[in-house]
Design a protein around this nucleic acid. Sequence first.
DNA 1: CTCCTACTCCTGC
DNA 2: GCAGGAGTAGGAG
Length: 189
Amino acid sequence: MVIINSYVELFINFIGVTPNEYKKMGENLEISYGFGFSPFGKTMIATTRKGICSLEFYDDSYDEVLNRLKSTWEKAKYTQDDKKAQIQLDKIFIGKEKVNLFVKGTNFQINVWKALLNIHSGDVSTYSDIATLLGKPKAVRAVATAIGSNHIGFLIPCHRVISKTAAMSGYRWGINRKKIVLVYEQNNI
DNA sequence: CTCCTACTCCTGC
DNA sequence: GCAGGAGTAGGAG
């Protein structure tokens, strides 16, 4: 069951490439990344010309999220710009405007991530609902794995997927943060 | 091929 | 209520 309410939401344009497609274009990719703050703590954001390719929360050290960025887009050229990053973060979390996303994943992962975009702010869904939505009701664990490998926090709303028994289940950036994001959204509809 | 998993269901306490 | 096990489909190497 995916509950859909109607209210204004970020308009998200989604471009996905498979690992093979990325191999062909990887050499020319330029990534601008930086560290800033969002309502949910320290945040790293990275963008290409095609769109945002990473948005991750971190607590003490950014080593982990930066390493993950660089291993995902291993052939890209990187420039750091924290000021630009903070401006982007402010637009995302405070304003409401169009956002382009650029992600790398298998077809299965991309389909799962697209499905997440249909869960609106303030609503939640479950892993089995997403699996059913994709026509593979038994692929629950595979769906969960795909959701867990999402690198674009908040914008691809993996925090809106919880387990069927109403437990929060997992979150890459900490269960506690998952709760905080959900409460924040329910209060900001 | 052999692992592993941000799941779910069913049991038995 | 909680703990443990089986079933499960895909992904990663």
